[in-house]
Each structure stands twice: as C-alpha cells, then as structure tokens.
C-alpha cells in the first residue's frame, strides 16, 4: 500500500485541462502550497476549483488566478483579491458562491457515499433558487431543507501535517478545516504533508483521515505558511 510519490510534479502530472479540483485550506491556513506551485508550473488550464476561499493576490489559489488557469471557482468567501475581482467583473472568471457549511458537507457527502444531503442553509435566499426542497420535523416544528448534491471532483488536493506511506493523515490545529472532508471526497486524493513517515510510525488512534481515501502522498518542501491577518496582544 505504498502511496508515495516523489514530489508535487509527479503527484499532479495527470491533472488535465478542464479538471474539477477540490483544494483544501481555510484562507491561507492549511493550503497545499506545493501542488498549487506545481499546477502553476504545469500550466493546466480551465480548472474548476472547489475551495472555501480564493487565496490572496500573490499566494494560494491567487497564483492560479493570476496565470488565468481557473475557469470557475466554487467558494463561500472570496475576500479581498483585486485580480479576482477584475476577472469576475470582466466575465473571465465564473464564480459560484455557496454557504460554507454546504460546501464542507457536499465534500463530506462524496466521501460518505451520499448522493445528496439536506441543509436549511440558504432557505428563503437566492441560494435556494432552482433547488429541490423538503420539509422535515425539527424540534417539533416543520422546517424547510434544501437538497444539495455531493461534489463530483476529479481530484482532491489537500495538505496535512503528518502522513505515512499508506496515506494516513494527521492535521495540525485549525489547518484540518476543509482538508479532511475534501480528502474523503475526491475521486483521486493527493496529499502533501510536512512530514512523511513509514507506515507504523503514526499512532492508529490519532489518524484523522484513514489512508483508504488517499491515493498519492509526498513530503512537501519550503512551506511558507503565510499568515493573512497577524493579530497579537501585548505582553
């Protein structure tokens, strides 16, 4: 069960133009820096990126936007990125904004084998337009839920703290975020880790993502781990 590949270039080598990708991370926290750099280098075009955010102008998915490799973003919050805004307003980039919990759950549903899930998020808003809905009893009252489909992504690209050669993953702190549900939800899941160890070295009790969900794994290099909002207090 050795899932190890040499590096990011090898891990992403069969990602073709028009691929649908899930990209882990929240803001710049826990993003697959090595694979993003490799995709920029490879020049893969017309990508659909399912990612909570769109990075910043010169980091994260922002790098793929800058080189115009992204056709469509499916995100919950795209934040402050002037290049993103320019492409959106000029019609070069398609953007589908969906609630954050819906995004996470559609990834999870793919990994759990549910074709769709029901969520109350977006009921009565423009998010509900064109969607099927159903009433369910919640705490003794009828409540409306929207049906949201599981994502069907060609690849999930995630970043973990530690991983082993079988693809078992452990995340650090809030960098788990979308990485775990996306790792579960990809048809082919690529994991880059800060530290890759031989199978047997990670405590099976502490695995977050079981290796069955992971197809390729490599130890990344030169992690920048940029901080988007550095906030501190006085000693």
């Amino acid at each position: 069960m050795n899932k190890t590949v040499a590096n990011a270039e090898e891990a992403i080598k069969d990602i073709a133009d028009n691929a649908v990708l899930m990209l882990g991370g929240f803001g710049l926290c826990g993003i697959p820096e090595n694979c993003i750099a490799a995709l920029v280098k490879k020049g893969t075009k017309n990508l659909t990126c399912i990612s909570n955010n769109a990075g910043v102008e010169n980091f994260g998915i922002g790098l793929l936007l800058k080189t115009r490799q992204v056709k469509k973003m499916i995100s919950s919050y795209v934040g402050e990125n002037a290049e993103f805004e320019r492409q959106l307003l000029s019609g070069e980039l398609e953007v589908e904004l969906i609630p954050q919990g819906t995004l996470a759950t559609r990834c999870m549903a793919a990994g759990y084998g549910f074709p769709a899930i029901f969520t109350p998020a977006g009921v009565g808003t423009e998010v509900a337009i064109g969607k099927e809905s159903r009433m369910f009893m919640v705490d003794g009252a009828e409540k409306e839920f929207l049906m949201e489909y599981a994502f069907d992504a060609d690849f999930a690209i995630v970043k973990a703290w530690k991983g082993d050669t079988h693809g078992n993953l452990v995340y650090k702190d809030t960098a788990r975020n979308f990485n775990h549900p996306m790792a579960m939800g990809g048809k082919i899941t690529i994991a880059e880790v800060e530290e890759l160890v031989p199978a047997g070295e990670l405590d099976p009790n502490h695995i977050h993502t079981p290796g069955i969900y992971v197809h390729r794994i490599f130890q990344g290099v030169n992690y920048e781990k940029r901080i988007e909002q550095r906030t501190v207090r006085k000693r």
Partner: peptide
C-alpha cells in the same frame, strides 16, 4: 460580492 461564508448556515 465577497460571499456569505458561514453566515447562512
């Protein structure tokens, strides 16, 4: 439009 983030959920 920056997005709804987790507010709708």
């Amino acid at each position: 439009v920056k997005g709804m983030g987790g507010a709708m959920d």
